[in-house]
């Protein structure tokens, strides 16, 4: 066996071993068998990422405006926060108006929304995948964050906790392709399934009954069906209705209320525990 032959064999050996390891890791992670190892590795990385993200924020602030405009920028930020709160109040008021119109007020008062405990967290990273939509926050299992907890911002629903480490958590955004959340529309009371559009598409509420009269501008909220999210969290607003008489269902395109690219602070709803509905999928006695 000459040197070239040996090198060629070594090359293919390395390639086959590494591909095998990568496939094995993918299978192990996909079946949830690497969670403990990942937590161990991701914890120190989250600290480094948090530190780096804070420095990047400072640089980003410097590049977006001169320093002598600091006061004006603070004022703008304060006003923007007020606008966010007012917009949210406005959307909540529209929601209440819709309930009055349908004479469901009395029933809804009986099951008033409980006061949820919220944990404030900073966004310290974004998904490194070009096609997936998730963020990393600086709060983890040590702070009481549990997989499945809903996450919102001042403007509305952000997503759901996917994975936690001691001091960080990954949140899958509602705009991710794999995201599907039971949703309801404010005025028409139509229900459907909110699906993320991913990178190329738009977020939409699918499987809406054709008999429902959806209007552009309606507020989309979480319906609470399925027990994975609390009800009445603002998701966004309907910007287009895709209604074809030949089909059984219609579809509402939704503009999310949250600007996901500009997210810096989020709230994890820690007092809400997702309901495990798996039991209902098993046949009785099975």
């Amino acid at each position: 066996m000459n040197l070239n032959e040996a090198q060629r064999r070594l090359r293919w050996g390395v390639f086959i071993i590494l591909v095998g390891v990568a496939i094995l890791l993918t299978i192990l992670d996909n079946t949830g068998n690497l969670d403990a190892v990942l937590r161990f590795v991701q914890d120190p990385l989250a600290t480094i990422t948090g530190w780096t993200a804070a420095r990047a924020d400072s640089v980003a602030d410097l590049t977006t405006g001169p320093r002598d405009l600091d006061t004006a920028r603070d004022e703008i930020a304060r006003l923007q926060a007020e606008v966010d709160v007012l917009e949210r109040e406005n959307e909540e008021l529209r929601e209440i108006q819709g309930e009055y119109q349908l004479l469901l007020d009395l029933f809804n008062r009986a099951r008033q929304q409980p006061e949820f405990t919220r944990l404030t967290a900073s966004v310290i990273g974004r998904d490194t995948s070009p096609s997936l939509r998730s963020i990393i926050i600086d709060k983890g299992s040590d702070d009481g964050v549990v997989v499945g907890m809903p996450v919102e911002s001042a403007r509305g629903l952000v997503g759901q906790v996917f994975r936690t480490t001691a001091n960080s958590a990954q949140i899958v955004l509602v705009t991710d392709n794999a995201s599907s959340i039971p949703a309801r529309l404010g005025n028409s009371r139509a229900t459907g399934l909110l699906r993320g559009g991913g990178l190329g598409g738009s977020t939409s509420i699918d499987w809406v009954d054709l008999t429902s009269q959806i209007e552009v501008g309606e507020v989309a909220l979480t319906s609470g069906l399925g027990g994975k999210f609390p009800q009445d969290i603002v998701i966004g607003r309907v910007i287009e209705v895709d209604r074809r008489e030949a089909e059984l269902f219609q579809r509402a395109i939704v503009q999310p209320a949250v600007e996901f690219d500009a997210l810096e602070i989020v709230f994890v709803i820690t007092s809400f525990r997702p309901v495990d509905t798996e039991i209902f999928t098993n046949p009785p006695g099975g």
């Binding site: 390395v14 390639f15 590494l18 591909v19 390891v21 990568a22 496939i23 094995l24 890791l25 993918t26 192990l28 992670d29 996909n30 690497l34 990942l38 590795v41 991701q42 990385l45 990422t49 990273g125 998904d127 490194t128 995948s129 997936l132 998730s134 990393i136 996917f162 994975r163 990954q170 899958v172 991710d176």
Partner: peptide, 29 residues
């Protein structure tokens, strides 16, 4: 190149919700 691609892909997957190893595999190939 393959070894660097493998390590780079694994490092990226640590910050993604994608299963560990998918980026490494795609980078290597």
């Amino acid at each position: 190149g393959i070894v660097w691609a493998f390590i780079g892909g694994l490092c990226l997957d640590l910050f993604s919700v994608a299963p560990l190893g998918t980026t490494a595999l795609a980078f290597m190939l």
